[in-house]
Lab assay of single mutants.
Amino acid sequence: DETGKFLVLALYDYQEKSPREVTMKKGDILTLLNSTNKDWWKVEVNGRQGFVPAAYVKFL
């Protein structure tokens, strides 16, 4: 149950560059965990948590 969690859509592919980031593919649906930083949002994708560039995702 994803109640209270926001979902975001990956607009572009992103390859993680550090262990704190996660890789996503364009079209992936991600669970948004934290968006307090304007540049990097914490998400969960494929069972992994990490950061992606905020400009690469949008709210569903």
Score class of each variant (00 low, 15 high):
D1Y: 07
D1V: 14
D1A: 14
E2I: 15
E2R: 10
E2Y: 04
E2P: 14
T3F: 12
T3A: 13
G4P: 15
G4D: 10
G4R: 12
G4H: 15
G4S: 13
G4Y: 10
K5L: 12
F6K: 14
F6Q: 15
F6E: 10
L7D: 05
L7V: 09
L7K: 11
V8G: 10
V8T: 04
V8P: 01
V8Y: 09
V8H: 03
V8R: 01
L9F: 10
L9A: 06
L9S: 06
L9Q: 11
L9H: 05
L9N: 03
L9P: 00
L9I: 15
A10G: 03
A10N: 01
A10P: 01
A10I: 02
A10W: 03
A10E: 01
L11S: 04
L11T: 05
L11P: 00
Y12D: 08
Y12H: 13
Y12N: 09
Y12A: 11
D13K: 02
Y14T: 01
Y14G: 01
Q15L: 13
Q15F: 14
Q15G: 07
Q15D: 14
Q15P: 06
E16R: 11
E16S: 15
E16G: 15
E16N: 07
K17I: 08
K17N: 12
K17S: 12
K17A: 12
K17T: 13
K17W: 04
S18Q: 08
S18C: 08
S18T: 12
S18K: 07
S18W: 06
S18G: 13
P19T: 10
P19M: 09
P19V: 09
P19H: 10
R20C: 14
R20S: 14
R20K: 13
R20H: 15
E21A: 05
E21F: 06
E21L: 05
V22I: 15
V22A: 05
V22K: 01
T23M: 04
T23L: 02
T23P: 07
T23N: 07
T23D: 04
K25P: 01
K25N: 09
K26W: 03
K26V: 09
K26A: 14
G27W: 04
G27T: 02
G27R: 02
G27E: 02
G27Y: 04
G27S: 03
G27K: 02
D28I: 03
D28V: 04
D28M: 11
D28Y: 04
D28A: 07
D28N: 06
I29C: 06
I29H: 05
I29K: 06
I29T: 07
L30K: 00
L30I: 08
T31A: 08
T31E: 09
T31M: 12
L32P: 00
L32G: 02
L32E: 00
L33T: 04
L33H: 05
L33Q: 03
L33Y: 04
N34M: 07
N34S: 13
S35L: 07
S35Q: 11
S35V: 09
T36V: 11
T36L: 10
T36I: 09
T36C: 15
N37D: 15
N37T: 07
N37S: 09
N37E: 11
K38Q: 11
K38R: 11
K38C: 10
K38D: 11
D39K: 12
W40Q: 03
W40P: 00
W40Y: 07
W41N: 01
W41R: 02
K42R: 12
K42N: 06
K42T: 07
V43E: 00
V43H: 00
V43P: 00
V43D: 00
V43W: 00
V43T: 01
V43A: 02
E44L: 08
E44N: 05
E44C: 09
V45R: 12
V45N: 11
N46R: 11
N46M: 09
N46I: 04
N46T: 05
N46K: 10
N46E: 11
N46P: 05
G47A: 06
G47P: 01
G47V: 02
R48Q: 09
R48V: 08
R48I: 09
Q49H: 08
Q49Y: 08
Q49R: 11
Q49L: 08
Q49A: 11
G50H: 01
G50L: 03
G50V: 03
F51N: 04
F51C: 10
F51M: 09
F51T: 03
V52T: 01
V52I: 09
V52E: 01
P53S: 02
P53F: 02
P53V: 02
P53R: 03
A54W: 02
A54I: 03
A54P: 05
A54M: 05
A55S: 14
A55L: 10
A55G: 13
A55N: 14
Y56W: 06
Y56C: 08
V57G: 00
V57K: 00
V57Y: 01
V57H: 00
V57E: 00
K58C: 14
K58T: 15
K58E: 14
K58W: 08
K58H: 10
K58A: 14
K58D: 11
F59E: 11
F59D: 08
L60P: 06
L60H: 08
L60V: 13
L60N: 06
L60E: 07
L60F: 11
L60I: 15
